[in-house]
Design a protein around this nucleic acid. Sequence first.
DNA 1: GTACTTCTTTGACCCAGATCAAGGGCCGAA
DNA 2: TTCGGCCCTTGATCTGGGTCAAAGAAGTAC
Lengths: 250, 250
Amino acid sequence: MTLLNDQSLSVSQSCGDCPIRHRAVCARCEADELERLEQIKYYRKFEAGQTVVWSGDKMDFVASVVSGIATLTQTMEDGRTQMVGLLLPSDFVGRPGRGSAAYDVVATTDLVMCCFRKTPFEDMMTRTPHIAHRLLEMTLDELDAAREWMLVLGRKTAREKIASLLSIIARRDASLQQRANEDRIVFDLPLTREAMADYLGLTLETVSRQMSALKRDGVIELQGKRHVIVPDMSRLLEEAGDDTDGGILA
Amino acid sequence: MTLLNDQSLSVSQSCGDCPIRHRAVCARCEADELERLEQIKYYRKFEAGQTVVWSGDKMDFVASVVSGIATLTQTMEDGRTQMVGLLLPSDFVGRPGRGSAAYDVVATTDLVMCCFRKTPFEDMMTRTPHIAHRLLEMTLDELDAAREWMLVLGRKTAREKIASLLSIIARRDASLQQRANEDRIVFDLPLTREAMADYLGLTLETVSRQMSALKRDGVIELQGKRHVIVPDMSRLLEEAGDDTDGGILA
DNA sequence: GTACTTCTTTGACCCAGATCAAGGGCCGAA
DNA sequence: TTCGGCCCTTGATCTGGGTCAAAGAAGTAC
């Protein structure tokens, strides 16, 4: 996968101004560590729909999502596919110590990634515990998210699955834009109906039907196909079957 | 949850002889590090069926499974439950930096755990990168396993789910007893039909029916309800829908 | 404008797996 | 040896979500 336009390389900024500075794998770094990271980093840009890497391909870099959204998916020989990761800004892609990609990584919106070649990054990791420590913390968070997701996939109804996905996106969106605690929540779905289906282990028809049903029942409002308004977040959480009773959004 | 018998505390051995010495969180430790670990470790024993901790309860220790099997499960208010982790010997329980359990932890067989109080363990972790590094590696492995599991939950048929679970257990069992590469694989199921159902997002009736179907079709043989013989591992993997073509067992 | 394409909605029908129900095998206690 | 509790199997029936099919909406290329 080569870059389509060299403007991709012109994106450049100092780590100090980086929008994901305090959430990404570099969050814990001191000024001097940041400086060394700055020397080995480079940006890559992908357009919506582009594949970043194919499962099984050699992957000689790791990266943070700076802006946009990417997905990790697994595909069976007969074409059944399951999304196994949804990467939002500050999320980390790639595994230190592994040479090839375990999943397809696809940009679902225009995407900017902050990349590090694998070897220099691994070297830095062994020398600066701040990076290794933050990566462990992020990986544990991802494992928790994956386990929450397993409950959704294994035990929830189609309606609960949709409500769960909407609350996850609403929550992560709110935490990025730190205006939580409003009761009325508004966001754009970054996924097509098909991608939502791949996330939830459903077909796109069922996703569409359940979205219509939630709209009919007043749980959500839709403007166009992607713009979602949640008039009452606790109602949505209730529909999701989560025992968290509407309290915390962070 | 208190200990039922104080023989639990009499289990004691030097880390050097520990059966999980080279796979657990302490795998990378040098002799001196091991010695310090040895000072803060203690063993706990649980009987089959006992709950180790309840989700939400305070958890002031982390631990490695030494022998036996434990499960992590999540439960919805209405009782639907999903297993989100299957812990075999050498697996790690608990999250440094978190005070309470996120899941129910249950011993499904008699269980011995090597425990460390959270604070001393966290202290050691910051001082000995060998532990933090190994824990990162193990967490990344678990995340991969969780993602594989998500494909099973989201996209596989009941028959494929059962075949997948059997191959996972067969594989992990073989790697513990390092006699892989035999074509004929034999093991005991450490789970009831109900626990298998909770693992796979099925009902126990469906699990039972699919076990019978796989037996009828000669994919597996059963002696009693728990003892499983796999005459042809590649056949089982085929039934699981895995694109891995029967090659590697490690 | 008109004709593509891509994404989405909705309807009709069907089937894999859930649910409900009955009973069988095994083990430990009395 | 009989009882009571698991755990498991099997049958009958029901249903949530899949499949197949058609068409609407919105963008964009010409």
